[in-house]
Nucleic acid binder design. Structure first.
Lengths: 343, 343
DNA sequence: CGTTAGCACTCGGGTTTTTTGAGTGCTAAT
DNA sequence: ATTAGCACTCAAAAAACCCGAGTGCTAACG
């Protein structure tokens, strides 16, 4: 019962998994013997598969049909059976080619990266942008537009730009805007956005500001500028998973799309995977954060310079070509890191 | 044969359309007599419906079943039968509520608007952002980041911000960046982006610049900043249409998603509808631009001040609650216009 | 003992057949 | 002009049926 997994068991499990990945059909003993050149008869394979089922690696959808791998099987597979291939040459080339045409702003780059992940993997690409709160303040600027509207622009060290349209009560002369910006730039230099927020609050309390209407107005404006929102998420290629046979059923399709519509749960998951460097793999409902039965997530962190700032990855069916996708995610993360690296 | 559509015919057609909109099922003569209090027997209705079929307003999927409206019928319906209701109170309230929490940047506002359209209509929301080329240049700015990277930020009159990360060959001292920005701001003041591009080219040819390396570098940088891309498109709530029974079939679903994946055709269509003010309605394959069999598009233009700058709308099945959706689109467009209005 | 051939059995999925009922067109009566 | 009546149609749902891949088990075999 609590038997150890034999070497032969492993090989057969591998065969089942790979067949299932390829066909999305429950795989039977005969198929295994045919496709993978094991010198074994179907009967023997049946016995082994039966054991594997007892151990919880396989289940059969119903009595008389082949078996399909469980999440536990996939876990074992990616951990100790699968050897990760080197990235396929044409994948590598495409990634390089598409990364080259950068020169856009950060958001565009990340979105493009997400598309890239999606199209090279043929699943869904996902990129979590650097979380604003960790950015380091670089500069703030106010641009006067028509009427009483001004545009506040805040730039971070890493090139992120946040901007806000602000409708002011009364008109503010341009000189004042400049002075306000100078004041704030000095005040906030080198702080992270999180710290900026604190500092603003402190400053608003302080005596000397209390009675300087311009300063207090400046603080007020800048506070409005700072985003309180979580990091952005770029999710591309949703249509790709429509081709997966497991979602052929319309109801399942709907569920999947609904699930990804509110991105918060996914964000949680990605956020969590930021704390461990390198490639990580979430299989099926292991991470019961998302109701991802039948879905897996492969992520890798990316960085600017030395700091891990974000996560990117691929979401696909549990039945996914891990050997092919893992290197893609890995490589893309490294390339993005290189791209963002200050040199 | 080329009979005129009688008044009674109209009423019955209306009944059929409205029933079909409500149920998505072919509607038969009996249903019509029951749901809409016409003092007519099924047999009479049958006769009329038969005429309507001859005139091309109805077709029956097969001999022995109810009839469904053709695109021609919908066209007639929206043109001369339907009286557009006033916007539903709760819709209006939701729209107002959600527009209030603005203060984001333009892109965010528009995206939120698209979501809003989607959720109030329960179809898909679409918003085409102002086309960059028509914007009026306001200000350019260079922010030096770590290393040789600089961030170029261009602001338009209407509050649009474009920014680019630029990797320079050699380090540029901050003073130079400021001078470059000043030079450009003077040079480009008040021009549209399209004009800006021309001006930049002219200027690059001009004698006095040719030998001033700083100026030419400035021109070079600013050229990189200007987006050559078309206007952005915000398409939200795709999952909504999954609930529509006509897309219950997985293959159709896929087609729809595929169709919307490349947004260019949709952009064309929206662009076209920008040239006519007010609410416009595209039914089914009338606009054979998009392969929108079974889909309709309701748009309205929105403006900043006096200039029409963009289009927003709702995409749904042809079988859509026009009476309900048209006011939503209309009202939203007006509200956005008000929001963007310089006052 | 591990492996394999043989065999009875299961059961989901595809195919065909049947049934059902909403809906039609036509005709005759009002 | 309208309507009741009626025979007819036909898609969709239900039922009946078949098929075969796959299983578990047992017994034979090296």
């Amino acid at each position: 019962m609590a038997e150890q997994l034999s070497d032969r068991g492993k090989r057969i499990l591998e065969a089942v998994i790979e067949d299932y990945i390829a066909t999305a059909e429950p795989v039977g003993s005969r198929t295994v013997t045919r496709s993978h050149a094991l010198a074994l008869s179907p009967a023997t394979v049946r016995n082994v598969m039966s054991e594997l089922e007892e151990m919880g690696f396989l289940i059969s959808p119903h009595t008389s049909s082949g078996r399909i791998p469980t999440d536990k099987a996939y876990r074992l597979y990616v951990n100790s059976i699968l050897e990760v291939k080197h990235i396929a040459r044409d994948n590598r080339e495409e990634i390089q080619r598409r990364c080259r045409l950068a020169g856009k702003d950060l958001a565009q780059v990340l979105q493009e990266t997400s598309r890239l992940l999606s199209s090279t993997s043929s699943y869904m690409g996902v990129v979590m942008a650097p979380r604003p709160a960790a950015n380091v303040f670089r500069q703030i600027e106010f641009v006067k537009l028509a009427g009483r509207r001004i545009l506040a622009i805040m730039v971070s060290q890493n090139g992120t730009v946040q901007n806000r349209l602000i409708q002011t009560e009364e008109e503010i002369p341009p000189e004042d805007l400049v002075r306000m910006a100078n004041y704030l730039n000095e005040l906030l230099e080198g702080l992270t956005i999180a710290q900026v927020r604190e500092r603003l609050l402190e400053e608003m309390q302080s005596e000397k500001v209390r009675y300087d209407s311009m300063m207090s107005r400046a603080l007020c404006l800048s506070e409005q500028t700072i985003s309180t929102e979580g990091p952005e998420l770029f999710l591309e290629g949703q249509a790709n998973i429509l081709d997966q046979p497991e979602f052929a059923d319309a109801a399942k399709m709907r569920d999947v799309f609904r699930a990804f519509e509110k991105k918060s749960t996914l964000l949680d998951l990605l956020d969590r995977s930021m704390h461990a460097d390198g490639v990580q793999i979430f299989i099926g409902s292991e991470s019961h954060l998302l109701n991802m039965e039948g879905m897996s997530l492969i992520t890798s962190t990316y960085m600017t310079g030395k700091d891990t700032v974000g996560v990117l990855g691929v979401i696909g069916p549990t039945r996914m070509g891990y050997g092919r996708v893992i290197p893609i995610v890995d490589y893309t993360a490294k390339l993005i890191s290189r791209l963002l690296e200050a040199d």
